[in-house]
């Protein structure tokens, strides 16, 4: 996807920068969020654009992008799924949920590792990754599809869940 910031997006960006009257550098994370929301991931051009916008060196933006698990450097699927991996959800069956979601979306996670946590289906419709504790430990297993939060997602409900996200 070509990286072109619309005037509408730039207006939002300029407004967010005013939240940080002491240091524009503080706006790095919010700007990256706005850009990732629009473009689905952070391209190299976006890193340079944010740096120029805030008067920073590109490395000062890139080091942020590469550190935080919430920022992606590759395109996810149309619907990105995050399954909670941590203890309480794992006890409630989140590994089984991950397997069921991968089977239903035909995603191969065998190449996922720390540096490439996201796996995308061949048709690009879904992507999935494990996330660490999503903070709903009493109602696991939990997952997020895009910004939607789902609790007590039993493996038997996977079809029902995915039906909410038509591709």
């Amino acid at each position: 996807m070509a990286f072109e910031v619309s005037s509408e997006l730039e207006k939002k960006i300029d407004e967010v920068i005013t939240h940080y009257p002491v240091s524009k550098r503080s706006a790095v994370l919010p700007l990256l969020h706005l850009i990732q929301h629009e473009f689905r991931y952070i391209q190299d051009e976006a890193v340079n654009w944010v740096a120029a916008k805030l008067g920073l060196e590109p490395i000062q933006v890139l080091e942020v992008v590469t550190f935080y698990p919430g920022f992606r450097q590759n395109a996810p699927g149309k619907y990105h799924i995050r399954v909670c991996r941590t203890l309480s959800c794992a006890m409630a069956g989140s590994y089984e949920l991950m397997d069921a979601l991968c089977a239903a979306t035909k995603i191969d996670r065998s190449h996922a590792d720390h540096h490439h946590p996201i796996s995308v289906s061949a048709d690009g419709k879904y992507s999935i990754e494990f996330a660490e504790c999503l903070a709903s430990c009493g109602f696991g297993p939990v997952c997020m599809v895009e910004d939607d939060f789902h609790e007590k997602v039993d493996v038997s409900k996977v079809g029902e869940l995915l039906a909410k996200y038509p591709v």
């Binding site: 939240h19 080091e63 920022f71 996330a131």
Partner: peptide, 24 residues
Amino acid sequence: HRGAGAYICGEETGLIESLEGKRP
């Protein structure tokens, strides 16, 4: 101010670094 998925940002000085636009 929204974080970006890092547990260490719950540590108060890490959180402050994050809020300054840096690695936490």
